[in-house]
Amino acid sequence: MTDDHLRTLAAAVHVLSRSLHRRGVAQVGLDVLPPSESEVLAQIGSRPGSSVSEIARALRLQTSNVSTAVRGLVARGLVDRTTDPDDQRRTLLHPSPAAVRHRRLLDDAWAGLLADLLRDLPPDDADALRAAAPALGRLARAITADPARTH
């Protein structure tokens, strides 16, 4: 794959991600979260039981910024805090039942939106994108698995 192909892929993934997110939130009727809160909530959902500092490290954000986002998410009823049983000074973060329910609704809305978009593409393109789904999933997990990875 050439650099031009990779640029095209990166731009397409970015546009799809942002557009699917906005449209899914509107379709489901959820409040739009500020980007920082949305990113922190996604990280907490993928790593329940993490601390603020662990989330900050994973997202490469300042701990104070993550703390601010967490306060907003707690106020919205989307994040629950618990005390670490092994270290009473440490707070662990978990998605609330409402956040889990919202995520399920969004996942379903996004899948429906993609299904509609794929129906409008030539069959070979739609098939190629469906076939790429497992590889894209692995790519998404790889980019979030190692917070220290820069290249």
Rank of each mutant, 00 (worst) to 15 (best):
I55F: 01
P95W: 04
V28T: 08
S19R: 13
T63R: 15
Q88S: 14
R90H: 09
A115L: 08
D125Y: 12
I55R: 06
Q88W: 12
L139Q: 06
R103C: 13
A69V: 09
I55C: 10
R18L: 13
R18W: 10
A56F: 05
L30P: 04
A131I: 01
S64C: 05
L78K: 03
A12V: 05
V28Q: 06
T68I: 13
L20V: 10
P48G: 06
L129P: 01
P134Y: 03
P95S: 00
R60L: 04
A58K: 03
V15M: 06
L20D: 01
H14E: 11
S53N: 02
R60T: 07
V52T: 00
I44R: 03
P35F: 00
Q43I: 07
R90Q: 14
L59Y: 01
D87A: 07
A42C: 07
H151Q: 13
R47P: 05
G29I: 01
S36C: 05
S51Q: 01
A99Y: 09
T150N: 13
S17V: 12
D4M: 12
T91I: 14
R60W: 03
N65D: 09
T2A: 06
D116Y: 04
H102R: 11
L20I: 11
S96I: 04
L106K: 00
A133M: 03
R22H: 11
D4I: 13
Q43R: 12
T150W: 09
T82L: 13
R101S: 13
W110T: 10
A128N: 07
P147C: 11
P85L: 00
R138Q: 10
R149C: 13
A12S: 06
D116S: 04
R76F: 09
H94A: 03
D4Y: 09
A131T: 02
L93M: 02
A12R: 04
R60H: 05
A75P: 11
A115K: 07
L16K: 07
I143E: 12
L117I: 11
P35W: 01
L61A: 13
V52A: 05
V79C: 08
T91K: 14
V40R: 00
A111G: 03
R23A: 14
T2H: 10
R89T: 06
D124Y: 03
D146H: 00
A111L: 15
L117P: 04
A140H: 14
A75V: 11
V15R: 12
P97D: 14
D125K: 10
